[in-house]
Design a protein around this nucleic acid. Sequence first.
DNA 1: CCTACCGATCGGTAGG
DNA 2: CCTACCGATCGGTAGG
Lengths: 198, 198
Amino acid sequence: MASTETLDVETGPREAIRDAAMHLFGKQGYTGTSMRDIANAVGVLPGSLYAHIESKEALLVDIVADGISRFISAVEPSAKATGSPVDRLRAMIVAHVEVVADNPERSLVVFHQWRFLGPEKVPTAIERRRAYEKSFAGVVEEGVAAGLFKSGMNLRIAVLTILGALNWTPEWFSPDGKLSSKEVGELMAGTLLGGIQV
Amino acid sequence: MASTETLDVETGPREAIRDAAMHLFGKQGYTGTSMRDIANAVGVLPGSLYAHIESKEALLVDIVADGISRFISAVEPSAKATGSPVDRLRAMIVAHVEVVADNPERSLVVFHQWRFLGPEKVPTAIERRRAYEKSFAGVVEEGVAAGLFKSGMNLRIAVLTILGALNWTPEWFSPDGKLSSKEVGELMAGTLLGGIQV
DNA sequence: CCTACCGATCGGTAGG
DNA sequence: CCTACCGATCGGTAGG
C-alpha cells in the first residue's frame, strides 16, 4: 500500500498542485492567484512548488490544453458520426454540458483565463477553440442542407448563440442541483433546437 | 472654449481614468491591471491618479454599477410594457445586444470582474443581476401563460440559456463587423425564440 | 500633477 | 520539502 488515507484520490504532488491551481484560477483568476495561494492550498511552502512544476504559466498551459482536449474528445464522436444532424447536435450539446458539469471551475479557466497564456501559446488555444466551433458549425450546416434546420438563418450567429449559451453554463451549473448534467443538456438542446415559442 | 483639441470627448480627468480602467479591466482583468497601467494609458504618473479617484476598487465599483444600470435601463421599458410577450422578449434581446455592442469591454467587466468587488459590494451586484434575470423570466412566464411559449419547458433553464447566449456576445461581437448590433440582436432573438429546427 | 517614497507582496531561486 | 532570500512590482501616501 502506498497510502493508508481513506480519500487518496491524488496520484502525485504534481496533480495535487494542478488541481489546487485549477480551483483557484477558476475562482480568483490567473492574475488574482499567487503561488503562495496555491502552496497554501496544497499544504507546502511556496518555494517547494518548484520541485514539481516549472512555473505558474506552465500550470495554466497544462490546465487550458487539457481542458480544451476534454471538450473536443467529448463532442468529436457525434460531430463525425453519420446519423441525423438533429440527434448529433443534441448529443454534442449534452456532451458539452457534461464536461462543464464534471468541473465547472476548470471550464471557467478554459473559457476566461487563456488570455494569460504566453503570447506564443495564445494562437494555438484560439485555433483549437475555432476548430471546436467549426465542428458545431459543420453539423448545423449539414442540418440546413438536409432541410432539417432553417435555411434562412445566419449560420454564424446561430452557432455563436448556441455556443454562447453552452459556454455560460459554468457560471450557474451546480452539481448539487436537482437536475443532472444530462438533463440540463437535454433541456438546453430542446430550447436551442426548437426555440421557446409554441 | 475649454479646449482646442479636435477629439475632445472627455469631460474631465476622472472620466478619462474611468475609461482607461474600463478598457484595461476588460482586456487584462481587474487583478491583471496595475494602477501604473492605468496611469500610463491616461498619460500621468501613478501617484497622480489619487487626486481624482479614491482607490482601484472604487474604479471597479463605478464601472460595474454603471454597467449594470445600463442593461437594466435598456431592457426595463420592454419588460414592463403590456404588449405581446413575443415582441417584448425580442425587444429585450435586441436592447441587451445593443448595450453590449456599445462597449464590449465594459460588458466584460460587468460580467466577469464583479467578483473582485469588496465583500460588502458583491451581494448588491448579485442582487441587481438577479433582478435583471427576473425581468426576463417574468416575460417568458407571461408568454407561457398566454399560450405563446411552450408550457412543457423548464423555465429556469430556458432563461439561463437565453441569458447565457446574450452574456457571451461581448466575447465575439465586433463593431467593425458587417452586422449592426440591432441585426445581431434580431438574429439571436430569432434563434432563441424560434429555434433552429424547421 | 510630480517627486520621492512606504511596507507588502509578487514569481522564482540557491543550497541544503 | 524547508530555510532564507532575490529583485521587481504592487496599491497607495506625504509634501509640494
